[in-house]
Amino acid sequence: MDGGVSQLLEFVKQCEGKSGNALEPIIKGALEHPAIYVFSELTHCPPVEAFIESKANEKLINTLELFSYGVYLEYKNNSNKYIPLNDEMTIKLKHLTILTLCRDTRSISYKTIQSETDTPDLGKMETLVIDSIYRGIVRGKLDHDKQCFHVEASAPRDVPSERIPIMIEKLEEWLKQLESADDTIRQQLNHLNSEKDSRLFHSEKMKELYARKKEHIQQSILSSIDQSDDMPGMMRMFS
């Protein structure tokens, strides 16, 4: 579930030594490829970075950014900003939209998926989700009774630079929670070890007390036997 990184690297290699218009068919090819759902390696390779900075083909650049970070409704609401999408690219962008939804929640309602992918037909929406599962970008179960998709796992998406501080903040908060949980576990272990030591100490004391009592009783019996005139009778009594 790597989002097609290995396939993308083939397109990155094709970019070597190229510039300007020569990069356009390579970028389009990556966008159209049915197995590629991440584009960071392509976006950040030097030739494509230079192409983006040059703004030579803004619609293509916008489309690359859309497939990297965006969702389908962005395209629908501002289609003039992007290159025309063929059927495969349209489906792929809807898959990426589902992928984004899976990143933020573990259970997505059918209505949300229908709305975000502009797929009002229930059967087509389910087919879209099932296709996402078959392509290996999400894993989960469709729940017809509760009308939702239960997410088990999802492939990563590219992260825009403005989202990185938010991710760092979330990771730091997660780290704090782990440290707090670790402290709690250590305290519980220390408490359990203390109780264990206390029980062992108590057990040893009880053994010592039992041994002394036993020895005292034996000595008392022997003393009684020594003082008795009826030795055979006393022996029979304790036999």
Score class of each variant (00 low, 15 high):
residue 223 S to L: 10
residue 90 T to N: 14
residue 88 E to N: 15
residue 201 F to V: 08
residue 175 L to G: 14
residue 161 S to D: 11
residue 171 L to H: 09
residue 149 F to V: 13
residue 75 Y to W: 00
residue 11 F to S: 03
residue 29 G to R: 04
residue 45 C to E: 05
residue 15 C to L: 00
residue 175 L to H: 15
residue 98 I to E: 01
residue 4 G to T: 07
residue 117 T to N: 02
residue 165 P to K: 03
residue 157 R to S: 07
residue 138 V to Q: 10
residue 193 N to M: 09
residue 86 N to P: 11
residue 108 I to Q: 00
residue 111 K to E: 08
residue 170 K to P: 04
residue 151 V to P: 00
residue 46 P to V: 03
residue 150 H to C: 12
residue 227 Q to D: 06
residue 5 V to T: 14
residue 194 S to Q: 11
residue 152 E to P: 02
residue 76 K to M: 06
residue 205 K to A: 08
residue 115 S to T: 12
residue 201 F to M: 12
residue 231 M to K: 14
residue 92 K to W: 12
residue 193 N to I: 06
residue 20 G to V: 03
residue 213 K to C: 04
residue 172 E to H: 09
residue 196 K to G: 04
residue 143 D to Q: 14
residue 168 I to D: 11
residue 63 T to P: 01
residue 89 M to D: 03
residue 188 Q to H: 06
residue 160 P to C: 03
residue 102 C to H: 03
residue 19 S to A: 07
residue 170 K to S: 11
residue 79 S to Q: 08
residue 134 Y to A: 09
residue 231 M to Q: 13
residue 60 L to A: 02
residue 43 T to I: 09
residue 171 L to S: 08
residue 87 D to A: 15
residue 7 Q to R: 12
residue 41 E to N: 08
residue 169 E to L: 11
residue 86 N to A: 11
residue 148 C to G: 09
residue 106 R to E: 12
residue 149 F to G: 12
residue 174 W to E: 14
residue 142 L to W: 14
residue 215 E to C: 02
residue 157 R to Q: 10
residue 189 L to D: 01
residue 147 Q to K: 15
residue 140 G to W: 07
residue 100 T to P: 05
residue 33 H to R: 10
residue 237 M to C: 11
residue 134 Y to C: 08
residue 228 S to D: 08
residue 7 Q to V: 08
residue 188 Q to C: 03
residue 192 L to Q: 07
residue 54 S to M: 11
residue 200 L to P: 02
residue 201 F to N: 11
residue 162 E to L: 13
residue 71 V to W: 03
residue 82 Y to Q: 01
residue 75 Y to L: 00
residue 161 S to I: 07
residue 130 I to P: 05
residue 193 N to H: 05
residue 162 E to W: 15
residue 118 D to S: 03
residue 77 N to H: 10
residue 115 S to P: 05
